[in-house]
């Protein structure tokens, strides 16, 4: 741990290593901090935050699929006020980068979240969630049109001096157009991918399994899709990209880094093995040793270069 070769710069700031946790799979870090020191991670992305508290979707909210998981949590969270009072003081003391994921249902709500959080210490960056598939309005609607995505990005950019990351949906015709639109609107980094829409039917009840009928698919099943989107977006923008979608092993993380990710996030794999991010951090150091690579940053986007190793 604390291998200086793993330090990566995402825009203006450095992460101690390129391994984060993905928003929605890590709560506000309290639970997993009881299993391992969260300070070992490059950073954590907190559960999606809305202005008002949200109860979330009716259960069942989860269904396992082959090497995957469909969830329809519905952005359950305590709301901005409770977050500031109860969660942020804890997050500040974690000793790692804290990414606050914000989800507005209107442009004004995004502006409000960004401006209130701008006045707080202990936040490394805001992650603008324009890609949640599990809420009826807002959410993904902002993430599927370049103009809307740019408008949200610009609004948040103007409301805060914090670094602005924008989390993209894979559920679009041309993800590169969205990526370029948010880059032009002032995003400091792009994170991708959010979940893919999916559903399952309970053949005994003859009804959809999920209370919300459909949800978002994540886990190893989506990894090739995420990698493909990352590959495309890396070619289309200059800002850093945080890659996520099914990452479960050091090898997965290396694939994402080589496809162009400056950092990666672990989500659903936490449920399969809570130590996954620690194993990935160790595995990255091991790769650098074996392959005699100086720094993990030397590997970012390397797969785009025409000459491979053999």
């Amino acid at each position: 741990m604390n291998d200086p070769r793993l330090i990566v710069k995402v825009g203006q700031f450095s992460l101690k290593n390129p391994v984060l946790t993905a928003s929605g799979t890590f709560g506000f870090a309290r639970e997993y901090n009881r299993l391992f020191p969260v300070s070992a991670l490059g950073g954590i992305a907190a559960k999606g935050l809305t202005v008002q508290p949200r109860a979330g979707n009716p259960p069942p909210r989860l269904v396992e699929t082959p090497s995957g998981l469909i969830n329809a949590i519905g952005l359950q969270n305590p709301g901005l006020t409770a977050f500031l009072q109860q969660e942020l003081p804890f997050l500040r003391e974690l000793g790692t980068a804290v990414i606050v994921n914000i989800a507005g249902f209107t442009i004004d709500e995004f502006a409000h979240l960004a401006s209130v959080l701008d006045g707080e210490t202990g936040i490394t960056a805001l992650e603008v969630n324009i890609s949640c598939p599990n809420v009826k309005k807002g959410g993904m609607a902002f993430g599927i049109h370049p103009e809307a995505a740019a408008r949200v990005t610009r609004t948040v950019r103007e409301a805060t001096s914090l670094p602005v990351w924008v989390k993209l949906s894979p559920n679009v015709t041309a993800i590169t157009e969205i990526a370029q639109a948010v880059e032009e609107a002032g995003a400091d980094a792009i994170t991708l991918i959010n979940t893919l829409p999916g559903m399952a039917i309970d053949i005994k009840n003859r009804r959809p399994v999920l209370g919300n009928i459909s949800g978002g698919l994540s886990g190893p099943a989506v990894k090739p899709v995420a990698l493909h989107h990352l590959w495309q977006v890396y070619k289309a923008v200059k800002i850093p990209i945080v890659g996520m979608g099914g990452i479960s092993t050091p090898e997965d993380a290396l694939e994402f880094i080589m496809a162009g990710a400056t950092a990666v996030a672990v989500g659903t794999a936490m449920f399969h093995d809570p130590y996954t991010p620690l194993k990935i951090i160790n595995g990255l150091s091991g790769y650098l040793d074996v392959e005699q690579v100086g720094r993990v940053e030397d590997l970012i986007g390397i797969a785009h270069k025409k000459d491979g190793l053999d």
């Binding site: 997993y32 009881r34 109860a55 979330g56 009716p58 069942p60 909210r61 989860l62 659903t268 449920f271």
Partner: peptide
């Protein structure tokens, strides 16, 4: 019982209805 993922309270996947909400 409910369908469950993390088991530790992080993912909010296994909620049930109670008099004080999920």
């Amino acid at each position: 019982e409910e369908r469950m993922a993390c088991g530790v309270g992080a993912c909010l996947g296994c909620v049930c209805r109670t008099t004080s909400g999920y």
